[in-house]
Design a binder for these strands. Structure first.
Lengths: 183, 183
DNA sequence: GTCTATACACCGATAGAC
DNA sequence: GTCTATCGGTGTATAGAC
């Protein structure tokens, strides 16, 4: 067992149960390690586990989702690339967004700066694609925000209805909607 | 102190901290009652408190938000009425949606049926307005879902960025967007 | 009705054997 | 590295005085 493996195994627990609901018992069960053994990889305890999960998820997200936005391809193709990666990253809507989960309750007090920076990075990367497509910086920023709104909203609705269809439908329409200067 | 007052005082705790984060200590502090006194109003304990909060919030929501949708006014005016009420209900985006909060973690196991029904009611009421405006039932259903998506997504983005502007912007554009058959 | 006192389980965390 | 054992604190819930 490596630290990287441990992070991979505890990540779903934080995503599903949130910071407070991710108890050491559940984290221990998810890894197959005893509670005490988790402290070998995360000496500062649960807060360090959550920080590691957030950091690692951000790295995976940047590599999978943001990287396609920064290629030299045409704007529409870059957006298509992001949509494909997003579907994978959120497992067709099956899993919650860690940022959204950590934006409430006790986790918000601990991690708000990191969470906010991650979202701003995403908006920034999207906005640059839209400006490359000819949109004004104001409209680009607004449409980039709308993308996050629709993705996050779709993930919430999926959980509310227990039906992944809204997520896939939103992703499918996303590129065209974002490139529309009329919002 | 009445049961109704107690519900009003503990509701913000559940909204802000979620089911697991809403500890009896916090609920006790919010009401000014001792922990044991809460059991006078909610004999079955925390689960009954959460159920009462969910039930009461649903009643307020139906009266404030859904009722304007069911008036005999013009569709556009009914949507405007909902938007006004929504802004109030979510305090301009300041507070989270209880349904979204209860759709994750342990609360989902306890309350999923109630939560799902509440969302379906909302979609249904919206869809009927849109059909009255001449949209086909398929487009009306889809646009109604999009309304929930945008409202929930905006509430998430508000928390992520610590900025209420996205919520107010989404609400402002909602009626026109919903009545657009091109969705 | 509200309180103090308390029961008992689980929480996060640590010590130390192996 | 992983374990068992255990700590102090807090969680939900109950008993019973007033």
């Amino acid at each position: 067992m490596s630290r990287a493996e441990a992070i991979a195994q505890i990540t779903p627990i934080f995503r599903r149960y949130g910071y407070e609901g991710a108890t050491l018992s559940r984290l221990s069960q998810a890894t197959g390690l005893g509670k005490a053994s988790l402290y070998h990889y995360f000496p500062k305890g649960k807060e360090e586990m959550a920080a590691a999960v957030l950091e690692h998820t951000h790295q995976v997200f940047s590599e999978m989702v943001l990287k396609p936005l920064r290629t030299p391809a045409k704007p529409w193709e870059r957006l298509e690339g992001m949509v494909q990666s997003l579907s994978q990253f959120y497992q067709q809507g099956e899993v919650s967004c860690l940022l959204a989960i950590f934006s409430a309750g006790a986790a918000d007090d601990l991690f708000h700066p990191q969470v906010q920076r991650a979202v701003q990075d995403w908006i920034q990367a999207l906005s640059e694609v839209l400006m490359a497509a000819g949109l004004s910086s104001e409209v680009a920023d607004q449409n980039a925000q709308d993308a996050i709104i629709q993705i996050q909203g779709a993930l919430v609705l999926v959980r509310l209805l227990n039906d992944r269809a809204p997520f896939e439908r939103v992703l499918r329409g996303l590129p065209d909607r974002l490139l529309d200067p009329g919002g």
